[in-house]
């Protein structure tokens, strides 16, 4: 009887303690941002910073390097949250792919895990790269596979607690878009020659007076394509991230745990949606890059 009472009281004290923790966390969040409703904490969460926050366990302050000066431009190469996440993504992709390749070294018949990854690899090869570029596209396959898995894994970091998605950082997507841009131009120039490539931008059979306008539009198009790639990926991932945090944040805005089931339900819904988005956005980025490379290589209009 006494024992029962003791366990009962222990259980209730644990519940009380848990509730207190939630309230404390809410207070901490509220005090950190001047007002929970302002949503500043969300912005803080999704933007890059020099600290890895493991609230309530503490924070890791990343080393800040002094800016490097190259030709009058100061370059801040210090590590940030997203750079660290990027490395984690890269390491994860490497481990996964290494495991897959090891499975192939043992036997040509893949294991369960390897065949799941293989399905994606074959999809990228036969349904994305080869239709867009042709048989020649197989040479670019390592690039597209790396791109796809890199973006996919980085998208999934959105859903991991304490992690933060590098794909939701416009600097990261911009870097990927710049690499895609360089590949598109490089492959086009390699195939058609410098002069041939830029001449091929303007379709033949166009009245002479229209050529300057078309040329201007086409050259602008060269830059808008990667720009769109960059913004699409960044905006989609950022939007998903913010939506999840917003639903969670409802609990703190209303200041009551009673909203939690609804808020967490919606957040869960968005998270599941984000799994889909992670695949779709990685697929779109790779497909469009492959299409642009194909268009640069096959310029016949």
């Amino acid at each position: 009887m006494i024992f029962g009472l003791v366990t009962d009281s222990t259980a209730s004290s644990i519940v009380a303690g848990a509730a207190k923790t939630v309230v404390d966390t809410a207070r901490a969040v509220a005090s950190q941002a001047s007002d929970a409703a302002s949503g500043n904490w969300i912005i803080e969460h999704v933007t890059d910073s020099h600290t890895l926050s493991f609230l309530p366990f503490g924070e890791i302050h990343l080393p800040v390097f002094p800016p490097i000066n190259i030709g009058g431009i100061s370059l801040d190469m210090s590590l940030t949250k997203h750079v660290v996440m990027l490395w984690l993504v890269a390491i994860l992709v490497f481990i996964v792919m290494k495991a897959v390749s090891r499975s192939y070294k043992q036997s040509l018949i893949p294991g369960r895990f390897a065949s799941a990854v293989e399905m994606v690899i074959i999809f990228i090869r036969d349904d994305v790269v080869v239709p867009a570029i042709g048989e020649k596209g197989k040479r670019y396959l390592p690039f597209f596979l790396t791109l796809f898995f890199f973006i996919l894994f980085s998208n999934f970091f959105e859903l991991i607690p304490y992690a933060s998605t590098p794909s939701g950082d416009i600097s990261v997507t911009a870097a990927l878009a710049i690499i895609a841009f360089i590949l598109v131009q490089g492959s086009g120039i390699k195939q058609n020659g410098v002069v041939g490539y830029f001449r091929g931008l303007v379709p033949s059979g166009i009245p002479i007076f229209a050529i300057p306008i078309i040329a201007l539009v086409e050259i602008m198009g060269l830059f808008t394509k990667p720009f769109a790639l960059c913004v699409r990926l960044f905006a989609n991932l950022l939007a998903g991230d913010i939506a999840i945090y917003s639903f969670i944040g409802l609990i703190f805005v209303f200041g009551t745990v009673l909203v939690a089931p609804l808020a967490i339900g919606f957040a869960l819904f968005i998270e599941i949606l984000e799994v889909l988005v992670a695949f779709i956005q990685a697929y779109i980025f790779v497909t469009l890059t492959a299409l642009f490379v194909g268009m640069a290589i096959h310029q016949e209009h």
Partner: peptide, 19 residues
């Protein structure tokens, strides 16, 4: 939110190319 950080761009490009 939409601020380009050259350091991160370079790190990303470097990481990606290394990978």
């Amino acid at each position: 939110l939409v601020q380009l950080d050259p350091g991160v761009i370079i790190w990303t490009a470097f990481t990606f190319l290394l990978l």
